[in-house]
């Protein structure tokens, strides 16, 4: 197994540090087009450390408006870690340290004066495993607007809940049982409920961490459809293991490898004409 994984490095499993030491600057430099015009978020030279270990090194990338950015790469390449930096979910991990610069609409989100609570309202997140609160469907969606004080009265809240569920394509399925627990839904419905919950606070960016990995193909297809619709209003960053999924839902794709951002570009180009050898190996199934 392991011997196949790194054919480029002398058939030897190498730690990130080791390889970073050996590799020439060229190899570490991101190829393709990491930057876009009028970005929603900009990341420059982002390093992430877990304790003494470096998990992400010098990643620079932009997240554009109204488009889906897919992040792919083999397990442990740091794509999820990077995703979690974008709304500072890594803050909850005590040993995690982020260096470099991540800006949302021009504001450095790691600035000490930035509060994570409004940040997370603007950069929402959907997780790998559907995780609705053990409360009613209504309360799941209404929770965000409630804690952020987005509504003046019950009617407004009802409206937000209905709109969010509509947007998440779940309204027709659950409108008669809003008071039933969200945990009683099927896996695909639960994940769409989580998406509804995230969009109820009107975020600008939605981060999705392998949102379909726990779902069956039909549920996956529905969520993918939903992502395509949501793109018109939100910036979406999705981490996925399924390359088909990336090619179906995203406009741009970023390939991560062992903590490095190897290549970024329009999805179609990445999958048809990868410029970096590592990207090519990955998408042609040589390893992963």
């Amino acid at each position: 197994m392991t011997e196949q994984t790194f054919p480029l490095y002398g058939g030897k499993a190498a730690s990130l540090q080791e390889r970073l030491g050996d590799a020439s600057p060229q190899e570490r430099k991101t190829v393709g087009t990491p930057f876009v015009e009028e970005p929603r978020m900009t990341c420059r030279d982002v390093d992430v450390f877990y304790g003494g270990k470096q998990a992400i090194s010098k990643v620079s990338i932009d997240i554009g408006r109204n488009q889906v950015l897919a992040m792919i790469g083999p397990s442990g390449c740091g794509k999820s870690t990077f995703l979690r930096c974008l709304n500072r979910m890594n803050d909850t991990v005590g040993a995690c340290r982020v260096e470099g610069e991540i800006r949302l609409d021009g504001i450095d989100i790691y600035d000490p004066s930035v509060d994570v609570v409004p940040l997370r309202a603007r950069v929402g997140m959907v997780f790998q495993k559907p995780n609705p609160f053990p409360k009613s469907i209504y309360d799941n969606v209404a929770y965000g607007p409630r804690i952020h004080g987005l509504t003046k009265d019950k009617n407004e809240l009802d409206e937000i809940v209905e709109t969010s569920l509509h947007k998440a394509g779940l309204w027709e399925e659950v409108k008669d049982r809003l008071r039933e627990p969200g945990t009683g839904l099927s896996g695909g419905q639960q994940q769409r409920l989580c998406i509804a919950r995230a969009i109820a606070v009107s975020p600008e960016v939605i981060l999705m961490d392998e949102p379909c990995s726990a779902l069956d193909p039909i549920a996956t297809a529905k969520v993918e459809e939903l992502i395509a619709e949501l793109r018109t209003q939100y910036s979406i960053v999705i981490v996925t293991h399924a390359m088909q999924q990336a090619s179906r839902v995203s406009q741009r794709t970023a390939y991560f490898h062992l903590g490095d951002l190897i290549e970024v570009g329009p999805t179609e180009r990445i999958f048809t004409n990868p410029r970096h050898k590592l990207t090519e190996d990955y998408i042609t199934g040589r390893f992963g």
Binding site: T92, P118, A121, M125, V126, K129, G144, I147, A200, V201
Partner: peptide
């Protein structure tokens, strides 16, 4: 209490205290 519940709450911008009082403590 599964960490996913904490993540869910933190992920939509609940403060630490809100996460604990609204979600973790009842469970």
């Amino acid at each position: 209490v599964p960490p996913s519940i904490r993540e869910a709450a933190l992920g939509i911008g609940a403060s630490k205290m809100q996460t604990v009082v609204h979600h973790v403590l009842p469970l």
